[in-house]
Simulated scan of single mutants.
Amino acid sequence: MDSYDVDLIERIYTASVIPEQWAGVIDRLSNRMAGRGGSLFLLADGQLSWAAPPATHSVMEEYVAGGWDKKNPRLSALLARAHPGFIQDRDIAGKEYDSLPIVTEFLRPRDILFTAATVIKGARDDLAVFSIDRGRAGGYFTPGDIAFLDRVRPHLARAVALSGRLKMEQAATATAALAMIGIPAAVLRKNHTLYAANALFQDLIGEVFIASAFGRLSLGDPRADRWLKQALADNGRAATTVRSIPINSFAGVIGVLHAIPACHHARDLLGEGGTFLVLAQPKDNSVVDPEWLRWLYDLSPTEAEVAAHLSRGLTVGNIARVRGTSVSSVRTHVKSLLRKTGLTRQTDFIRSVSSLAAISPAILRN
Score class of each variant (00 low, 15 high):
230 Q>V: 07
296 L>S: 12
256 V>L: 10
270 L>T: 08
250 F>Q: 08
273 G>P: 05
180 M>D: 13
274 G>T: 09
180 M>C: 06
225 D>R: 12
211 A>R: 15
221 D>H: 06
202 Q>C: 01
277 L>K: 11
259 A>D: 01
221 D>T: 03
298 D>T: 12
256 V>H: 04
287 V>R: 00
192 H>V: 10
236 G>E: 09
202 Q>L: 14
274 G>V: 09
235 N>W: 00
214 F>M: 08
268 D>S: 09
190 K>M: 09
204 L>V: 09
233 A>R: 01
266 A>F: 14
202 Q>V: 07
264 H>W: 10
247 I>E: 00
275 T>K: 08
236 G>C: 04
290 P>F: 06
288 V>S: 06
241 T>R: 15
253 V>W: 05
292 W>L: 03
181 I>T: 14
186 A>Q: 07
211 A>D: 13
221 D>Y: 09
295 W>F: 11
273 G>W: 14
228 L>M: 15
274 G>P: 00
262 A>T: 02
274 G>D: 05
264 H>I: 07
213 A>W: 00
191 N>L: 07
239 A>Y: 08
211 A>T: 10
179 A>F: 06
222 P>D: 05
212 S>D: 12
192 H>N: 15
275 T>Q: 03
243 R>W: 00
239 A>G: 14
196 A>C: 06
232 L>I: 01
227 W>A: 14
200 L>W: 03
223 R>V: 14
276 F>Y: 15
182 G>Y: 06
197 A>M: 02
225 D>K: 07
283 K>V: 12
297 Y>T: 00
293 L>D: 07
233 A>N: 04
203 D>I: 05
263 C>R: 15
266 A>D: 13
257 L>W: 02
286 S>W: 01
281 Q>N: 07
206 G>H: 06
201 F>G: 04
183 I>V: 15
196 A>I: 08
178 L>E: 13
224 A>V: 00
295 W>N: 10
213 A>K: 05
220 G>A: 10
225 D>C: 09
203 D>V: 05
267 R>I: 15
199 A>F: 00
267 R>G: 03
234 D>I: 02
219 L>I: 07
245 I>A: 02
289 D>A: 04
270 L>S: 04
282 P>V: 08
298 D>G: 02
241 T>Y: 04
197 A>S: 13
273 G>L: 13
258 H>N: 15
283 K>M: 13
222 P>S: 01
211 A>F: 09
231 A>W: 07
178 L>Y: 10
233 A>K: 05
198 N>T: 11
189 R>S: 12
185 A>I: 08
258 H>G: 08
202 Q>R: 14
256 V>D: 06
274 G>I: 12
250 F>V: 11
264 H>P: 03
